[in-house]
Design a protein around this nucleic acid. Structure first.
Lengths: 172, 172
DNA sequence: TTATTACGTCAGGCTTGTTGACTTTCCAAT
DNA sequence: ATTGGAAAGTCAACAAGCCTGACGTAATAA
């Protein structure tokens, strides 16, 4: 009944049993950690009558300035109507700018204004701070493992989107 | 401008720089992985007109049979009214049983029925399968790191709740 | 010219969360 | 024994953020 899966470690010692309970702990860790992870931005967003959806939009527009509405739809995995309400308020409030596409005039390319950029930085800084602290506590090896497991959890399509995101690192 | 934080590794090689971009990758990994993580149960739940909230309730009642409504409220972090709607349907549908508290007759203790237990297992099995696969792909060292980082991301209160959960492992 | 794509929007519905107010039951302390 | 407060449940009203379906317009592609 107790589903045990032994995994031989690289070294030979420190045998890890993946019982259902071990897996359950991982599941619960995801639940609790994700909640903590979104708590800080949620506080800021609530101040100004925005929601998590606004944050996500800001994040990806910042990440890929000039991306089209369809591309954003794709990465967020929501419907056009759902995104539209969020994007509408961001544009009306002057956080996001929507320009007619350069290549294809049917497309709209999205950019953050200075104001939008400022909010994005304020939001993501709280998350980076939390992540930075966690990374420091857990150490570099843990960080590598963390990313490996998360990536292994994604399905093909999601992983493709994740990998397609540019590195923003200063270009040499 | 580029906020770099060098972390000295245990060994000495493999120096890890925690640039803002590195942190951003971690943030994005959380976003995408969490979405993938909830996708499987969501499909099953949609079949039977339940939502993620029902899943969470089932999970924790299964985890701690006989826990009180207040305790469940606490761990879920929602209001009584919000939980009540969900719990109401689960009880009416015969998945959860609510018994008058043994210690304190004001309290209600919650238990899964066989039917509730079956659904919980069906839901969590999809997540365990995904987690198991990820664990196998990433390896035992990655798994340890994964858990360490997630736990380090939780705030004090959340961590307390997480640690308070019993190990369901067969008692010796 | 016609079909298709990209975008935007109207309408309506669902889940899950929120506040606030009120009741019933029960324990505990004065 | 009375009273104060805790635990639970419920009613009502509201909002965010999803969804589907149906249209309309502009611009590109065939």
């Amino acid at each position: 009944m107790q589903n045990k899966i032994g995994i031989a470690p690289s070294g030979g010692e420190n045998l890890l049993f993946l019982t259902d309970d071990q897996l359950r702990r991982g599941i619960e860790a995801m639940f609790f950690a994700y909640r903590a992870f979104t708590a800080d931005p949620d506080l800021i967003l609530a101040e100004m009558d925005y929601g998590r959806a606004h944050h996500r939009a800001l994040h990806f527009v910042n990440r890929e300035p000039g991306l089209t509405v369809t591309a954003l739809l794709d990465v967020l995995g929501v419907t056009k109507q759902s995104l539209n309400r969020v994007l509408r308020t961001l544009i009306d409030d002057g956080l996001v700018e929507s320009r007619v596409g350069r290549r294809d005039r049917r497309e709209r390319q999205l950019f953050l204004t200075d104001k939008g950029s400022a909010l994005e930085r304020r939001l993501s800084e709280t998350q980076r701070a939390r992540m930075r602290a966690a990374y420091r506590t857990a150490g570099p090896q843990a960080v590598a493992g963390f990313r490996q497991v998360l990536e292994a959890m994604m399905d093909r399509d999601t992983l493709r989107q994740y990998k397609a995101l540019k590195d923003l690192t200063e270009p040499k």
